[in-house]
Amino acid sequence: MNSRQDVIHVVDDDASFRKAMYRLLRASGYRVVLHESGAQALEKISNDDRGCILLDVQMSGLNGIELQERLEKVGNALPIVFISGHGDIPTSVRVIKAGAEDFLTKPVSKDVLLAAIKRALEHYDEGHEHVSLINSLRARICTLTAREQEVFALVVLGRLNKQIAYQLGTAERTVKAHRHSVMEKLGARSVAELVSIAVKIGHPVA
């Protein structure tokens, strides 16, 4: 169940709690990285490894909620599980809305904690697959020539070959050739698939 590669980041300004979490998570088979402040976490956490972040809400300096916002901005992909000393409803609603994986209250039992970590890692995987697909599609789009990209853009907008030729000031045959090349390069068998790719990469469609 647990992968040796999984990294759990613990962000808490309470040394004693950090140390206890380190022991528990290590004993449960995770790699653990401890961060004693929000600022340190912001600096050290990267998306390189599969993992999640256990984040305390109330910290001096950069607090948990602020750290969540800052991580989002720098494109963090790691799910965040909040562990608060005192769970009040406004805070929990706020962090969940901002995309937190879970909101736990200290003292948290091992079972609840590990279950939350497991869910977080699963979501990480889902998120991670999606990101890889998009990235590969974007890479394929980049292989298109400038003229092919123009044709792709007009096709997914639902234009007919005739209209595209007229718009680009070229022959219908040339457009057909470009269109074939685009579908080949993107691995699409139909216009519908082309549209689907456009949607996935956030390209405007009809």
Binding site: F17, A20, R23, L24, G85, H86, T105, K106, P107, V108
Partner: peptide, 9 residues
Amino acid sequence: NQPLGAILA
């Protein structure tokens, strides 16, 4: 809850 959490963990 801080020490209690640490104790439990």
